[in-house]
């Protein structure tokens, strides 16, 4: 096995292994739940996986983890087809968060750690460390069913990260968490991207994805409609500028190469029709009045999302 992993030292030198999906397709009978989905999850980055209900996020993640058969297509890890041993080193958080309701928190996390190949001692230490971090150390002996849903979710994320996984595949890790818990969870995930691990998580909370993610994949009806770095995406989708001056801005309508979308007092929203026209406009504006605001308007992810999924 080590023979196959050694040649990939190119990627390990940079500390990042890459997860890639190539034309992944899954059909249930006549229904195509996931249709020719290709994207990559680079190491060291957080990739948000967004889509409406039934878009195919969970199905895709289950195929990546090998718990669901693949109709066609391939999953690659580190530049080669993924193996069961690769997946063993992944941290996975499935959609529902049951765990064993009747078993104690510590006991079952140690059990999952042992199944993942840790010694009982190492598992116990890793679990206690994480429980302390989440302020749950005093609940270690409690049965999972006695915890609140948010705390159950924390326990579940511990199951996914306790082994220092090679990659993290998390299905809706933030749902049901309060803002403080979201921050704690995000910090934890960032620690893992900091050690070069690719993190893929699904979410329907766009503001969250916008805030946390380096990259974004939008899935709609089983197909990838957008993939890219979050920043690039917003720039690319933009092309609109806003200018705000201390005077009425109605005169902008007459400037050549500028298409005004909306004027509201001193504020004007416009599109550039001739390259450089916005710079000429800026010079004219500053000679006429004080320029209070000038810049590209970044659409919110919600706007992009609505646009691409319609």
């Amino acid at each position: 096995m080590s023979v196959t992993t050694l040649p990939t030292s190119t990627s390990s030198r940079t500390g990042t292994a890459r997860l890639e999906l190539h034309s992944l397709t899954r059909r249930f009978g006549d229904i195509t739940a996931v249709d020719d989905v290709s994207f990559s999850v680079p190491g060291g980055q957080m990739t948000g996986f967004v889509g409406g209900n039934g878009a195919g996020k969970t199905t895709t993640m289950r195929m990546v983890m090998g718990v669901l058969g693949i109709t066609s297509g391939e999953v690659h890890w580190d530049g080669r087809p993924i193996t069961h041993d690769d997946r063993r080193r992944f941290g996975y958080m499935p959609e529902e968060r049951g765990l064993y309701p009747k078993q104690g928190v510590l006991d079952q996390l140690v059990y999952l750690g042992e199944l993942g190949g840790m010694s009982a001692q190492a598992a116990r230490e890793a679990v206690m460390e994480h429980l302390e971090r989440f302020g749950l150390a005093d609940r270690a002996k409690d049965r999972v069913e006695k915890l609140s849903l948010g705390n159950q979710q924390r326990v579940q994320i511990i199951a996914a990260v306790m082994r220092e996984p090679a990659a993290l595949i998390l299905d809706e890790p933030f749902s049901g968490l309060d803002p403080v818990a979201v921050d704690a969870m995000a910090d934890l995930l960032r620690e893992h991207t900091a050690r070069g691990v690719p993190v893929l998580f699904s979410s329907h909370q766009l503001d969250l994805v916008e805030r946390l993610c380096d990259r974004l994949v939008i899935l709609s009806r089983g197909r990838v409609v957008v993939e890219g770095a979050t920043g690039d995406l917003r720039e690319r989708e933009s092309g609109r500028y806003r200018l705000t001056i201390s005077d009425d801005a109605g005169w902008v309508r007459d400037v050549p190469g500028i298409h005004v979308v909306d004027v509201d007092g001193g504020s004007v929203l416009f599109e550039v029709e001739a390259a450089g026209a916005e710079q000429a406009l800026l010079q004219r504006a500053s000679s006429r009045a004080a320029v209070l605001e000038f810049g590209l308007v970044r659409p919110s992810l919600s706007e992009i999302y609505r646009e691409v999924t319609q």
Partner: peptide, 16 residues
């Protein structure tokens, strides 16, 4: 069925 329903089986099945 408890393991199936809670999906913990998915975590276990990726480990062993």
């Amino acid at each position: 069925v408890e393991e199936k329903q809670s999906r913990i089986v998915e975590i276990i099945a990726t480990s062993i």
